[in-house]
Design a protein around this nucleic acid. Structure first.
Lengths: 327, 327
DNA sequence: TCGAGGGTGACAACCGTTTGCCATGTGTTG
DNA sequence: CAACACATGGCAAACGGTTGTCACCCTCGA
């Protein structure tokens, strides 16, 4: 069941078989048909590694995440999965366990077995990212570095909306619950928050930073309560969800005593108690778009896209974790 | 940066380099050291496809799921990811989109680029599964077919506990919310439910089947309500969670008017409203174990394990969606 | 001193495809 | 009718490793 067998069976050269199978226009309709029939007959299955060795193309793209455990990535996984399959690529999953070192190390090791990679929220310093991009086609998500194509979800713009929402409900003391300090998204969100509050002549406060994960919600909730704020915007839904449980434990009413808004709108945000007001991010779409961007650069026949970075809008989904300020 | 370069740099043959790198015991300490130093120096990175072509081993294992969207698989993905990385394998993700045809088709196509595969809840008929297993090392999860190693989560045993729990709360009319008809797990759960109820001389009812997905919760909730039951066990948490929202919409109190128990204990079951009583399944562990099983058969040097199938226990986690029968 | 044996490294075949280059045959054009 | 272009298919050289086989050398025992 190699192309040599097919060649023998049909009496043509292996090169012809190869062409009939992978570049059908290169052979005449008659032989092509004959060869394809034989292939079907012998139920031939191509050998990807051999193909990769000879052609340099592996037909595989990796999705690199910092922690598969984070529900935020579930959406990304879905999105990339869909689009990669559609484009005929295999989907490799790499977990860097929150370590930048591991990130470059794994990527370096797998470089030759990948056609490209999608970095979901890379922790790499900008220069390392650029260096890596020179080695292997990359698209980043939620991480904008000059020279590396990327798709970013415009949560910062959404944050302005969220602040607007809270202010309109009468809140004056709103605090930002900060995520990991090295996180690009976290910084962007905090900046946006500060700017938005300043437009209302309100002082921006923050608590944290806290490590990723729902467990951080406990400490975060306590910190927010301690800050005396009446509303807060959390770095992400995982934090917010964690806070909700903690607040419930402590008997703090949401939104009666404290309004909470999250970011991302991950699985669960709609059925938590109370359902979470959050910035809905088109995560899945981001994944799909990242793949499109990557695949179109991989396909050299396709026209290279002008814009190397796409920004996706976010919108505020008001549920029940935010409410008017009560005196 | 191929082994030929290293060979040239150190003045030995490529075969020696190859051995120094992949079978270090086969060369003397002196040359090995010299070669490894040179490799580091030239920063050589092995070429996986070439290796795969020559050796037949790809160092890649696929996790095959019916729908990446299902949170049940999130746990599996985590588990397999961890263990595969630990064992030095790359992790390929395949989504069959609930189609058995697609399942065998994809697996056939990728066969040569995989060392093995883990089937999370395969939809394949038994004979097809066995045929496939002859072609490529397989381990199934929650699917027990003679001759194919597997790890199954013993939810059925847990169902007995759940029924016990409900009966002890006074419930006499408890209904099973059925999942996809072809699902092996669904059948096993229903059987277990029936048996458990019969032990209490109670009649087993069921509603459904419903297609996978949270959305089914709506129809399911209505059906359960219509059945007149005072308690139900849902095929999985996704259903149960969906039901919870629907019941809330309809103003039905849980557990006041209806007790609900789910299966699996997926992400979200603990912070839903009310938190869900469910059968906690060690999903992540199942993933890890499946990998262990697979990897140990791949490694021919390792002693082949006797037991080809592992069963993992499940336990009842009582939260707030179940309560005493109220007249 | 000689032969045996174990350890070390080299040779070369092979894994299954792709692809650049060339030879042939066919149709088109002037 | 000749010359030419083009379409088609074949040859063979890669691609980057692994591995079976074998030759060599060194050491040790008789």
């Amino acid at each position: 069941m190699t192309i040599a067998d097919i060649a023998a069976a049909t009496g043509v050269a292996v090169s012809t078989v190869s062409r009939a199978l992978s570049r059908p226009s290169r052979v005449s309709a008659a032989t092509r048909e004959r060869i394809q029939a034989a292939a079907r007959e012998l139920d031939y299955v191509p050998h990807p590694p051999a193909r990769a060795l000879a052609s340099g193309r592996t037909g595989t793209v990796a999705l690199v995440v910092s922690d598969v455990t984070n529900p935020f990535y579930f959406g990304m996984i879905r999105g990339t999965q869909q689009q990669l399959t559609a484009a005929g690529y295999a989907h490799l999953l790499i977990d860097t366990e929150d370590s930048a070192d591991r990130e470059v190390e794994m990527l370096r090791a797998m470089r030759r077995s990948l056609d490209g990679a999608i970095l979901g929220a890379s922790r790499l310093p900008a220069r390392a990212l650029v260096a890596l991009a020179a080695d292997i086609p990359l698209v980043t998500v939620n991480r904008n570095v000059r020279g590396v194509p990327s798709v970013v979800i415009d949560t910062p713009a959404g944050i302005a909306q969220a602040v607007e929402h809270l202010v309109s409900l009468g809140h004056r003391d709103v605090v930002y619950v900060s995520g990991p300090a090295q996180s690009w998204s976290n910084q962007a969100r905090w900046q946006a928050m500060r700017a938005a509050l300043e437009r209302h002549h309100l002082r921006a406060q923050r608590v944290g930073p806290f490590p990723p994960g729902r467990a951080s919600g406990t400490a975060a909730a306590d910190a927010v309560l301690n800050s005396g704020a009446t509303a807060c915007v959390a770095f992400n839904d995982l934090f917010a969800l964690g806070m909700l449980t903690r607040l419930r434990e402590r008997g703090v009413r949401v939104p009666g005593d404290l309004s909470v808004v999250g970011c991302d709108d991950i699985f669960g945000a709609d059925f938590s108690n109370p359902p979470l007001t959050t910035l809905t991010a088109p995560i899945e779409q981001a994944g799909r778009m990242a793949v499109s961007l990557l695949v179109s650069r991989l396909d050299h026949r396709a026209p290279q896209p002008q814009r190397r970075t796409a920004v996706l809008p976010t919108y505020l989904t008001v549920r029940e974790s935010t409410g008017p300020l009560t005196v």
